[in-house]
Computed example of a mutant assay.
Amino acid sequence: MGTTQLESVPEPKYWHLKTVLSEALDSEFSVGEILPNERDLAARFGVARATLRQALEQLELEGRLQRRRGVGTTVAPPRMGVAVGSRQHAWPDAGDDWQAVDCTVTAPPAAVAAALETGPDEAVHTVRRSRVSHGQPVAAELLYVPASSVPALSAIDAPSGPARARGVLRELQRLELDGRESAVELGSARAEDAKELDRLPGAPVLVVTTRFLVEGRVAALSVATYRADTCRLTFGDAGGVVIDEGPERRAS
């Protein structure tokens, strides 16, 4: 690689360097590739290592880079699409990238009980799932399902844990879904979410809350927490539009 000196620009040097580095990621590196060390990168672009670190930190916040302990800084995979406003008649996705972790029967938080219109002390099935993309955790979900929504659930067929979680999801598929309503907000990762998502507490996350409606009532409520640095909101049925991210990072 040749040496590239940054020209004098009015914007902060690290911000201009971030733009230059982003272009280099698109043209010279592939997903998962390890970047050269900081000394070599600083020499290539003619900047101080402190300036380089600022640029790398910004690219990490934007989801372009990942810093992995014991490995180094690597090029991040494309952001995973989080569909909003589409698939109105689909139950929670049970695809290969979602993994059932556990299922307990407990009284939900007061806000959840109010949304489900259950009693404050009425226990519901709480399904915990995790979503993985390119080998890394990107989302953690709590799916709250009243017992009345899955009356045929058998403790014999699905006694506990992941098996019971899959049993609840299977029984939901038997219901005729009228529609679903979703809301998205930016939040900060709580300690338990941060641990599951391999992030620090307080890291930015997208919280997607979805109500599943059957015969005019809320049959289930999903609260899914997505890593903000690995996801993007998509609209419509395809949601595959990506702009200015190079061929290696384009994905539906």
Rank of each mutant, 00 (worst) to 15 (best):
A219E: 02
A90F: 14
S252V: 12
A163Q: 12
L206W: 14
R190F: 00
A224L: 12
A191F: 00
P247V: 05
L56K: 08
G72P: 07
S22Q: 04
P12R: 11
A189T: 08
L116V: 14
R44G: 01
L61P: 02
P159G: 04
V168S: 05
P162H: 03
S149T: 15
G81R: 09
R68I: 11
S252E: 06
Q54M: 06
A42K: 02
D244Q: 10
R53P: 02
R232I: 14
D102L: 08
G70C: 12
V223I: 11
R174N: 09
Q66A: 06
L233K: 07
E117C: 11
I156N: 02
D229T: 02
S8H: 02
L233V: 14
R79K: 15
D102W: 08
R211S: 15
D157K: 04
V214Q: 04
V105K: 04
P201S: 09
L153C: 07
G119E: 10
S8N: 06
V75C: 02
E192C: 00
Y144D: 05
G135H: 12
Q5K: 01
E176P: 02
W91E: 07
G63R: 10
V218Q: 00
L200T: 05
R49D: 09
V242H: 07
V82H: 05
Q66L: 15
D97C: 08
A140C: 11
R232D: 10
D237I: 10
A100I: 06
E122L: 06
V20M: 00
P137N: 06
A76V: 05
A191W: 00
D237Q: 13
Q136H: 10
T4I: 01
L197H: 08
T3M: 01
V218M: 00
M1G: 04
S148R: 15
G70S: 14
R227Q: 04
V242G: 07
V101K: 07
C231Q: 06
V71A: 07
R67Y: 04
N37V: 01
A163P: 03
V207S: 03
D26P: 00
G179M: 10
P109H: 10
D178R: 11
A90M: 12
L56W: 08
F29Q: 02
P159W: 11
G187S: 14
P137I: 07
Y226V: 04
D229L: 03
A43M: 05
A224E: 09
D178Q: 12
V132I: 15
A83S: 14
L142A: 12
T73L: 11
A111N: 13
S160F: 11
A158D: 08
S22K: 05
G239A: 08
P10T: 02
L143S: 07
R227T: 03
A111P: 09
L186E: 13
R64H: 10
P108E: 10
A24G: 05
